[in-house]
Design a protein around this nucleic acid. Structure first.
Ligand SMILES: [Mn+2]
Ligand SMILES: [Mn+2]
Ligand SMILES: [Zn+2]
Ligand SMILES: [Zn+2]
Lengths: 161, 161
DNA sequence: ACTGCTATTGAAAGACATTACCATTAAGGA
DNA sequence: TCCTTAATGGTAATGTCTTTCAATAGCAGT
């Protein structure tokens, strides 16, 4: 029984085809995907997957810390699989790729410091560091646009309008 | 000439009544406000203020680092004035109040560490630490709901539905 | 494998949030 | 004051997210 199954079962939840599909789509993705994108890609595996179910599944997975939300400049959000450990999220604003910074120690220090100095109790830290990944730092302006466009097409067939 | 005026003028932008109104509303607020809320409150000072202009003003002010976006559990975003210094944002999920953690050193250390270890170049850090402020930590469940409701009414007349 | 309970689904409609359009207005330098 | 043009704001369009509810399908028990 996978860690996921036991996690769901422990709270009386069921491992459905829709949930499996969402997880598969996310684990195949190289960039965060919006609910709409996840639905579109997921339907290649499970044709009846519904958008509402994707929203509900993402909410559940986020609650269980299986999935992390990525906040972009535009209104809508992207979602990605994540580890359960405390770690900053690195987002490249050019290629869109996301990485988790391994080793939560520096972040834990920051939070400890904040809590000690202010009395505030932090229970939901959002630490998303946007910038340029090593691969994207060399590119010039025009190349950057190309690379961004290229990446965009690669994974999710660019469902954004 | 205020720092704001010079900041705008430096990029050929104008200090309009709409922009002044948005700034005034934000500086009077004790919690982050949505664009719709800002518009409603702003119209008490300037009756013709338009929602679209508020969106554009917020985008501009965010670009100039005069305003910071606060990401809530629900879809839509709140906006608040902020300093230009690098600092984590503390958000109380009960009373909604927001504070900036003074002293950017721990955060700067975290970012330096990330950049050194990964080669990633961070240029837009989003560090929003949600939890309970000191005042809200004592409250029980029922009290908490009361306090949240109370706060909500206090500032912006609860435009959210 | 069959049955029953109920968590879950998904289509459709609705409620909001955000953006595009464009004729009109008003900052602010000359 | 006069001009240039950045900026506005109403409206319509688009996109995102939620609510609803009848139908479906996990899965525990037999
Ligand atoms: Mn989007
Ligand atoms: Mn957000
Ligand atoms: Zn990159
Ligand atoms: Zn509080």
């Amino acid at each position: 029984m996978s860690e996921l199954e036991s996690g769901l079962a422990a709270s009386g939840r069921r491992l459905t085809r829709a949930r499996r599909t969402v997880l598969r789509v996310l684990s195949d993705a190289s960039v965060p995907l919006s609910p709409r994108e996840i639905t579109a890609v997921g339907r290649q595996h499970y044709g009846h997957l519904g958008l509402v179910t994707v929203y509900r599944t993402l909410e559940l997975l986020e609650l269980m810390h299986w999935v992390r939300r990525v906040h972009g400049a535009d209104g809508c959000h992207g979602y990605m699989l994540c580890g359960r450990a405390l770690s900053p999220t690195l987002v490249c604003r050019l290629c869109g790729r996301v990485a988790e910074f391994p080793g939560g120690q520096p972040l834990r220090s920051l939070i400890d410091r904040v809590q000690a100095d202010t009395g505030f109790r932090v229970d939901d830290p959002l630490v998303q560091l946007s910038g340029l990944c090593p691969a994207c730092q060399g590119a010039s302006g025009a190349d950057e646009a190309d690379e961004a466009a290229h990446r965009e097409n690669g994974s999710a067939e660019s469902i954004h309008t």
